[in-house]
Design a binder for these strands. Structure first.
Length: 427
RNA sequence: GGAGGAGUGGCCGAGUGGUCGAAGGCAGCGGUCUUGAAAACCGCCGAGCGCAAGCUCCGGGGGUUCGAAUCCCUCCUCCUCCGCCA
């Protein structure tokens, strides 16, 4: 959650943020006041109890003191109940306040205001009109949208044959590449509980975007046991260190993980209804770093470059944009989006999003480190990014490497992962 | 799913309902000694809230009591054995 000391900075986001901030501030004032009153009463009770422990239990003095303390004790109990309520509502408000944008984030209202950081590679040229991937894939018989819909409904797709193999190959290619750059590979659970989602910021605000399982493991009616399909491996991997204190020597921690991702929000927008772009289920390799505050922005740049390597390795043209305040996600302090070129749709599409959350997630998930043995623990900075989205990479390959005869050439870097396959050809 | 056992500070581990935020040990930090290191000795050494005084925290929640790490209830987690299964 946001560091309460930075409430002013978050207002840069504009919109209705100010309302939530004001509401939280009011509650927090009341909380502090009540806390102080309660502490005074508790102090009095503690002192009185200490005196009592030295009295003869059979004396009249003892009995009198006991009767007197009964009143104080019940007043304290009442105050504690009230404070608990106040604390939880104040905490609840705080969990709904987004992160403060980094000073370098440009002010803007929509993605149209995102400045381009740089572009890499070149657009491929075609002697024919390039088709969108759904046409390429269907003609090759490797993307089966109808079967996906039959089995699970709209926005679920069956990959057949070469597309299925390509999916596997991409996962392995990416994980191998990242391992070479010092990321530790992790294979996490696909489901996550509330505490983990709260830690990374998906909850409590975005529950509607998630697939929630109808069954809980453990006793019913305990919200903490609710299980959700994870929307991104960022949740599992960042929460590897939920509620723990790391040694400074362990930082930066670098992880990569493959995991299927599930998002319920995808269908609601009514856009990207065709093809693989916006699915309820997709595969993704994720990069996560835990760092010190001093190094987090350098590490963000490094992580973004590691994600870019995947695309340049595949010979794909892309550009990197910096998200403006209006486009910045809830928990992010700064985000770079990597957008791959899709000739079949004549547009750039997000294929990776790399963010520095600073201490926002670390405060929620209580992930801290000790700068040196003599220091108090302080929150780490967390960084993550797609490295990269598998489904959209398939989209990019099908569109960029399509040939006049309907076949698709496999990028050289992937061939070792496909038994040397050089080309996907029509049946 | 069934039966038993256990959860205390970074780790191990004590703790008759009252002066216990908690003995002791290990690790860590500072110092003495040493050319340097080791050993030895001395000191420090959990976290959160609060400007501070102070308050809170012994797996979570609830209860009993003037007072709970200690008693009661409940849940969770881990370990052992049995069952089931990929």
């Amino acid at each position: 959650m946001l560091d309460p000391a930075r409430m002013d900075d978050v207002l840069r986001r504009g919109g209705d943020v100010a309302t939530v901030v004001t509401s939280w501030r009011r509650l927090d004032e009341r909380r502090k006041k009540l806390q102080a009153e309660l502490d005074t009463k508790r102090g009095a009770r503690n002192a009185a109890n200490e005196r009592m422990s030295k009295l003869d239990k059979k004396s009249e003095e003892f009995a009198a003191a006991r009767d007197e303390l009964k009143t104080l004790s019940s007043a304290i109990k009442e105050g504690e109940t009230e404070l608990a309520t106040l604390e939880s509502t104040s905490q609840q408000r705080l969990l709904h306040i987004p992160n403060a944008p980094h000073a370098s984030v440009p002010v803007g209202t929509s993605e149209a205001d995102n400045p381009v950081l740089h572009t890499a590679g070149t657009k491929p040229t075609f002697t024919f009109a390039p088709k969108p991937h759904w046409e390429v894939g269907e003609q090759l018989g490797i993307l089966d949208f109808e079967a996906g819909a039959r089995i699970a409904g709209a926005r679920f797709t069956v990959l057949r044959g070469a597309a299925s193999r390509l999916n596997r190959a991409l996962i392995n290619y990416m994980l191998d590449l990242h391992a070479q750059h010092g990321y530790d590979e992790v294979w996490p659970p696909a489901v996550v509980r509330r505490a983990a989602l709260r830690g990374t910021g998906q909850l409590p605000k975005f529950e509607a975007d998630l697939f929630k399982l109808d069954v809980a493991v453990g006793p019913d009616h305990v919200a903490d046991n609710d299980l959700f399909l994870s929307p991104t491996a960022e949740v599992q991997v960042t929460n590897l260190h939920l509620d723990s204190i790391l040694d400074a020597a362990q930082l930066p921690r670098k992880y990569c993980a493959y995991a299927p991702c599930f998002r319920a929000e995808a269908g609601a927008h009514g856009k990207d209804t065709r093809g693989l772009i916006r699915q309820h289920q997709f595969d993704k390799v994720e990069l996560v770093k835990l760092t010190t505050p001093e190094t987090s922005y350098a590490e963000l740049d490094g992580l973004r470059q590691d994600a870019e390597r995947v695309l340049s390795g595949l010979g794909l043209h892309y550009r990197v944009v910096t998200l403006c305040t209006g486009d910045l996600g809830f928990g992010a302090a700064k985000t770079y989006d990597i957008e791959v070129w899709l000739p079949g749709q004549d547009t750039y599409r997000e294929i990776s999003s790399c963010s520095n959350f600073e201490d926002f997630q670390a405060r929620r998930a209580k992930i801290r480190y000790r700068p040196s043995a003599a220091d108090k623990p302080r929150p780490v900075h967390t960084i993550n990014g797609s490295g990269i989205a598998i489904g959209r990479t398939i989209v990019a390959i099908l569109e960029n490497y399509q040939q006049a005869d309907g076949s698709v050439v496999i990028p050289a870097a992937l061939r070792p992962y496909l038994g040397g396959l050089e080309r996907i050809t029509p049946p």
